[in-house]
Lab assay of single mutants.
Amino acid sequence: SSQSQGISSSSTSTMPNSSQSSHSSSGTLSSLETVSTQELYSIPEDQEPEDQEPEEPTPAPWARLWALQDGFANLECVNDNYWFGRDKSCEYCFDEPLLKRTDKYRTYSKKHFRIFREVGPKNSYIAYIEDHSGNGTFVNTELVGKGKRRPLNNNSEIALSLSRNKVFVFFDLTVDDQSVYPKALRDEYIMSKTLGSGACGEVKLAFERKTCKKVAIKIISKRKFAIGSAREADPALNVETEIEILKKLNHPCIIKIKNFFDAEDYYIVLELMEGGELFDKVVGNKRLKEATCKLYFYQMLLAVQYLHENGIIHRDLKPENVLLSSQEEDCLIKITDFGHSKILGETSLMRTLCGTPTYLAPEVLVSVGTAGYNRAVDCWSLGVILFICLSGYPPFSEHRTQVSLKDQITSGKYNFIPEVWAEVSEKALDLVKKLLVVDPKARFTTEEALRHPWLQDEDMKRKFQDLLSEENESTALPQVLAQPSTSRKRPREGEAEGAETTKRPAVCAAVL
């Protein structure tokens, strides 16, 4: 046999249950609850290399294929790409003598399909299967379609040439079993990697079954959420508030809700932002270029202005709740996480202390139980975000031990490091100062900020419009641009040419 590394010779191994799959997660993409704000000051410096380099560890398999027929071997997927077919160049070659004697062998292509993985959001991997055969590759009886790919989820059954000719079961060793999710959700989405997690739940990458488009699904544990919100009269209202707010909003710089499922837990389906959180971008770069800050901040102002015009105060604006559309420097941003939002009543007064301390406005800290506050709290938070983006460190921090965090904020005395700000323009610093004003009545509004000289930049605004146009074009394009080929190089076993392929839609398939 010419099988590559990772293939075992026996096809009769006992199949494990899916609970053996491991679970991976990374930083929070968007969480309903406010958790302790991640610290920006503690960015690790590059460490000196050791005298002796450690040995390379043996790579762990990321997936496993269990053979369902004699003549096929099990495969431990270690590499990122595997070709399957009769050709000797394939990493998994159909060359077992037992297999060659079967009637089905002649229906398999020289290069029938490939399984591979690509880097997705949060640097996690996504597994795909890609059909290159004349007679078809099927996943859970659905045709992939020649020249098309679809994501592979845990426990997928792979069939060759005929939908009933099941050859492998695919085990993704990095994700959960699909069966743990409600059927209504599974009918519409293929669940994938964990993108982030918080005290009350997690955010998962998923794929729409009909279109193969990526989405983010925010899962909120009702049990954990009820415990964490025990002081509230009705904890469920917080989730329902977020859903109702998101459904009503329609702005290019605000995250869109696509679906909602109320089962044992809450499942909020949101558009996916491939670039992750602004927080991670700031930490990764230490600070952002001023031109990049301007492009992002302009969009934040437009989003918050839209919220305020619609009578909504976000109340928890922070870099973790600003998501980026891509890994590119120039990209769209979207505001997310409306769990603490407040729809303005007639009095415009709110007395609930919520939000993240580092970003809270002075009037929030001094008015607990005594007075109210209004939309100006969001403008203060925007000032803190702009400060961080321009400088790479927070204006107020618990680690300045000589003054408490509350006193720093209520006095408006931010930590100004001259040598850092020497590289920032006077106009940018002036806008920061106009937003970090203790008196909410004297603080800049979103309208005033948008009129500030720093943002009178036609090149930046043109760039934003171009990015918007690109997004609109990409969302308007159909996901499947061509029909699967019906040509046949070899006959199917026991049926006429093209008899099955043309009847089945290529579900969740995307043209390369």
Results as ranks from 00 to 15, higher is better:
Gln299Val: 01
Leu512Ala: 09
Ile268Asp: 11
Tyr373Asn: 02
Cys293Glu: 01
Tyr298Arg: 10
Lys258Ile: 12
Gln305Ala: 11
Ser341Gly: 14
Pro418Phe: 03
Gly355Asn: 09
Ser325Ala: 08
Gly276Glu: 12
Met300Asn: 02
Asn415Cys: 08
Asp280Pro: 05
Pro252Leu: 09
Leu429Ser: 13
Cys379Gly: 10
Leu365Thr: 08
Asp316Tyr: 05
Tyr298Thr: 13
Val283Gln: 04
Phe279Asp: 02
Glu471His: 05
Met300Phe: 03
Tyr296Glu: 03
Thr446Arg: 01
Ile417Asp: 01
Glu500Ala: 10
Leu436Val: 08
Glu244Ala: 15
Pro357Val: 15
Asn374His: 11
Ile335Pro: 00
Tyr414Gln: 05
Leu295Arg: 03
Glu244Val: 15
Ala361Gly: 02
Ala291Pro: 09
Leu288Asp: 04
Asp280Lys: 05
Glu493Ile: 00
Glu458Ile: 12
Asp378Gln: 00
Asn285Glu: 06
Lys286Ile: 09
Ile255Glu: 05
Ser404Met: 13
Asp337Asn: 00
Ala476Val: 09
Ile335Thr: 10
Leu481Ala: 09
Ser348Arg: 15
Ile268Pro: 01
Lys281Phe: 10
Val507Pro: 00
Glu274Gly: 10
Gly345Asn: 14
Lys463Asn: 08
Ala482Cys: 02
Glu244Ile: 15
Asp330Phe: 14
Glu309Gln: 09
Glu470Ser: 01
Tyr266Trp: 06
Leu481Phe: 04
Arg375His: 10
Glu493Pro: 11
Cys508Gln: 12
Leu323Asp: 01
Ile335Asn: 03
Ser326Met: 08
Gly355Ile: 05
Glu495Val: 09
Glu309Asp: 14
Ala506Ser: 03
Ala476Trp: 15
Ile243Ser: 11
Pro394Gln: 09
Asp407Gln: 03
Met273Phe: 07
Val403Ser: 06
Leu450Lys: 10
Ile417Thr: 06
Ser469Phe: 13
Lys247Phe: 14
Asn259Pro: 05
Val437Thr: 15
Val507Gly: 09
Leu288Trp: 13
Ser367Cys: 12
Met300Pro: 04
Glu274Pro: 10
Leu332Thr: 08
Phe261His: 10
Ala303Tyr: 01
Lys503Gly: 09
Leu288His: 07
Phe464Gly: 01
Val366Ala: 05
Asp262Gly: 09
Gly276Ala: 05
Glu329Arg: 13
Ile245Asn: 14
Glu447Trp: 08
Asn310Val: 04
Gly276Cys: 13
His452Asn: 02
Tyr393Ser: 09
Asp457Ser: 12
Leu382Pro: 02
Ile257Lys: 04
Lys334Ala: 06
Ala291Trp: 12
Lys256Cys: 13
Thr486Leu: 07
Leu323Phe: 06
Leu450Gly: 13
Glu320Lys: 02
Asp466Leu: 00
Met350Phe: 12
Lys342Asn: 04
Thr292Asp: 10
Glu363Thr: 01
Phe260Ala: 06
Lys248Phe: 05
Tyr298Met: 02
Glu271Asp: 14
Tyr267Pro: 05
Thr446Gly: 05
Pro394Lys: 10
Glu244Phe: 11
Glu346Phe: 05
Leu301Lys: 00
His340Trp: 12
Asn472Gly: 12
Tyr266Ile: 11
Glu398Met: 11
Glu277Val: 01
Ile417Cys: 13
Gly311Tyr: 10
Tyr373Ile: 02
Leu270Gly: 02
Thr352His: 00
Ala496Met: 06
Pro252Cys: 06
Pro505Gly: 00
Thr336Leu: 02
Glu500Ile: 08
Glu309Thr: 11
Val282Gly: 03
Leu481Ile: 10
Arg490Val: 09
Asn321His: 04
Asp378Leu: 00
Glu398Gly: 09
Tyr373Glu: 02
Ile312Thr: 06
Val438Gly: 08
Val366Phe: 09
Leu295Gly: 05
Leu295Glu: 14
Trp421Cys: 04
Gln408Trp: 14
Arg462Pro: 00
Glu471Pro: 05
Glu471Lys: 03
Ala361Pro: 06
Asp439Arg: 11
Ala263Cys: 06
Phe260Ile: 11
Asp280Gln: 04
Arg375Trp: 12
Ile343Pro: 08
Leu323Thr: 01
Asp330Ser: 05
Asn259Cys: 08
Glu277Asp: 08
Tyr359Arg: 01
Val322Met: 09
Val511Gly: 14
Glu328Val: 07
Ser367Lys: 00
Glu426Gln: 14
Pro484Thr: 09
